[in-house]
Design a protein around this nucleic acid. Structure first.
Lengths: 205, 205
DNA sequence: GCACACAATATTGTTAGCAACATTATGAGT
DNA sequence: ACTCATAATGTTGCTAACAATATTGTGTGC
């Protein structure tokens, strides 16, 4: 009973941390997520871990086998194709919505994000690079003004990270940085077709 | 201890039944979902009900308030707009994919679905009409060959039902039947632009 | 040395009971 | 009669122990 925080809060907290670990490639596809191990690692009861695992399973990031436990998902080739097909569907409308809605403050946040990426790249911090790259897409999604699309992106981004660690050559940088840069520039000058084109090209691997 | 079926199975089972209840308008937005009450109603332990509620919360169909309980979601106006915006984004590509992929067997199933709808309409079975109408869209989504889009539709359909019972005049039929009919016809003759046009018109309320 | 059966261990699934919180009911004071 | 405080009730959140299943380890026969 060291910390009796609101349960909701720390369940959500653990959930986020696991997603971050996936985004940073610190959890590989297929990794087993033992309940007691996680409970000890996070200092909470097994019940809460269980709930987190179930939430992750519902979003498709972990697979659960009865009486066997939970494992980080390893998307098949067909799943990977579907993930990217869905992103190619969603992200153009995200860009388009952002262009239509973005305030000056939003553009500022985008530039800050790019700056952070540039920083991480300069420091050769691979984990940070990967995570920030994903955060860029999530930030964009959060500005599109559609929470359902945003939620979907919140599931597709970590899944994308998993596919990258499965099917990409190791030590390949996630996204060339200047592409993010160019997209933001196109958004800033409200050039919709260019931004969409850049985004689609960006998602073409 | 009357039925010790595999827990996974009956959790999924309860989950489906609640979604069905939402789709049939037997659960109104804002309804409280008490844990003990549900546990008794379904003949399972409170823990399992808890897990189901959490899954429903993750998909956005119920809202949970700490120490207060779980309630069927009542989408706001802005949420409703976003739900339909998302459907207008997804369903055209669903139709397009179905046209590209549908086998003879799929078309048969679509026609069977339409026949069921026609039946329910003849019998003035309002609950069945509403649910079957939702099932039509889900059936279509399942044929599109993209499980992520299908999953998203599986969340958006029940949400749509909730918005209908919130913002539609009571006793309004969910969808005019012939529209589904026409869509299937357009799919059958592989007329993509017509099918998409019909679907968009269909989603225009 | 190998394959199989059987025991030991570890992990997951479930239940019952307790603690914490919110809601409702009761009653005293004005 | 109304308001506020306080007690009673009910509901949710959590923990710990138990049951069921899978995994690993050990030994015996061939």
């Amino acid at each position: 009973m060291e910390q009796s925080e609101a349960s909701k809060t720390d369940i959500e907290h653990i959930y986020e941390r696991i997603i971050n670990a996936i985004m940073e490639h610190r959890l590989s596809p297929g990794s087993k997520l033992g309940e007691v191990r996680m409970a000890e690692a996070f200092g909470v009861s097994r019940t809460k871990v269980r709930q987190v695992l179930m939430m992750l399973a519902k979003t498709g990031l972990v697979e659960q086998f009865p009486n066997r436990g939970a494992f980080i998902a390893s998307p098949s080739v067909s799943q990977t194709l579907e993930i990217f097909a869905t992103r190619r569907l969603l992200e153009p409308v995200i860009v388009s919505n952002v262009i239509a809605r973005a305030e000056r403050q939003d553009l500022k946040r985008l530039h800050q994000q790019i700056a952070k990426e540039k920083d991480a790249r300069k420091q050769r911090n691979r984990q940070a690079i990967i995570r920030l790259s994903g955060d860029f897409h999530m930030l964009l999604a959060s500005m599109a003004g559609n929470r359902y699309i945003e939620k979907m992106m919140g599931e597709l981004c970590p899944l994308t990270c998993l596919t990258i660690s499965l099917y990409d050559a190791p030590h390949t940088p996630a996204c060339p940085e200047d592409e993010h840069d160019q997209i933001v520039a196109a958004i800033a000058r409200r050039d919709e077709s260019a931004a969409i084109e850049l985004m689609l090209h960006h998602l073409h691997h």
